[in-house]
């Protein structure tokens, strides 16, 4: 089994392996190898299309959590220029699960804030598996308020299993760190564009998720609780994980239909992790279009429509 591929992608992996093998066959054989390779490559694309056209919710969850999936820093590198990382909530900690700072988008200054997952165990330990502590939400709030002061639009990138459930996190009032961000973001006097790039886990995701536009990448997820948590509480069994994931309506497609998000950003064939450049280009274009639109709105109108959208949830 090829570990770069998820379980449901194994037929694709097998085909690709066959193609690789063919490439090393010496050319003196009778059949035209390059033709055969082209044929198999076309077949692999068709197969990928077929598999990805009917993904179930749990398969999307796996893609959203794929270790090779591009994370916040991968997008910062490809979409923005001149990123200056800024640290600290000024009271307690530097903050590594949430990164933030100023940058430029098409030469114009902006503020970026996002959760950062790691790829290796070491990186994940450093990033606390992208599960922020309260001071990291406070750092995010500090940067958002700075963005308001200097009229920089805010881009948030959401990718977290959830806010960190720890003893220290409770001592330092995780609840208030989250609620304060919801409170402040609802009235921040600068455009806010939020993108769920991978895992949108619960209140820990929402604390960076209140804005004028909320985008989701095609194979990202956004939910009140993890499917594992939901299955264990409501079904009392992990055997019902797939059923829980389906019932929760956590995919971009379903959330768009429910009008809880504004836009879905297409992923390259086989998912964002198969082509970072194409994914970043798609997202960059969407962000630029949205920002251009939002910049045209007078501030009071922007805030009013942000407020009205929040009020519409569940109506």
């Amino acid at each position: 089994m090829n570990l770069d591929f998820l379980d449901f992608e194994q037929p694709i992996a097998e085909l690709l392996a066959k193609i690789e093998e063919l490439r090393y066959v010496t050319t003196d054989s009778k059949i035209n190898i390059s033709q055969e390779i082209a044929r198999l490559e076309a077949k692999s694309r068709e197969l990928t299309k077929a598999i990805f056209s009917s993904l179930d919710a749990m398969q999307v969850v796996k893609l959203a959590r794929h270790p090779q999936r591009p994370h916040t820093l991968d997008y910062i590198e490809r979409i923005f220029t001149n990123f200056d990382e800024l640290f600290g909530d000024r009271h307690f900690a530097k903050g590594t699960a949430i990164i933030g700072g100023t940058a430029r988008l098409n030469d114009r200054p902006v503020m970026i804030i996002g959760q950062q997952k790691g790829r290796t165990t070491k990186e994940n330990l450093e990033r606390n598996f992208a599960m922020p502590n309260p001071e990291e939400y406070r750092k995010a709030l500090r940067l958002m308020e700075m963005a308001e002061k200097f009229q920089l639009p805010v881009f948030t990138f959401i990718d977290t299993p959830g806010a960190y459930p720890g003893i220290g996190a409770e001592e330092r009032n995780q609840s208030e760190a989250i609620s304060r961000n919801l409170f402040a973001m609802s009235k921040l006097r600068t455009p806010i564009i939020c993108t769920v790039i991978g895992e949108g886990g619960s209140g820990g995701a929402l604390a960076l998720g209140v804005g004028d536009k909320v985008l989701m990448l095609q194979y990202s997820i956004y939910a009140t609780i993890s499917p594992e948590g939901c299955a264990s509480i409501l079904w009392r069994s992990q055997d019902k994980l797939a059923e829980a994931a389906e019932a929760m309506h956590l995919t971009a497609e379903k959330l768009f239909k429910l009008k809880l998000i504004d836009q879905i950003v297409s992923e390259p064939l086989g998912g964002a992790h198969r082509n970072y450049e194409v994914m970043a280009q798609n997202l960059k274009q969407a962000l630029i279009d949205d920002l251009t639109h939002l910049r045209k709105m007078p501030m009071d109108k922007l805030l009013q429509s942000r407020y009205e959208k929040l009020m519409s949830f569940g109506r």
């Binding site: 209140g203 929760m248 569940g314």
Partner: peptide, 19 residues
């Protein structure tokens, strides 16, 4: 949980009203 993400959004909705 039975209301999916709609329930999570109530956190934002109520907080915005309080703001």
């Amino acid at each position: 949980m039975q209301e999916g993400l709609i329930s999570l959004m109530q956190m934002a909705k109520t907080s915005a009203a309080l703001a």
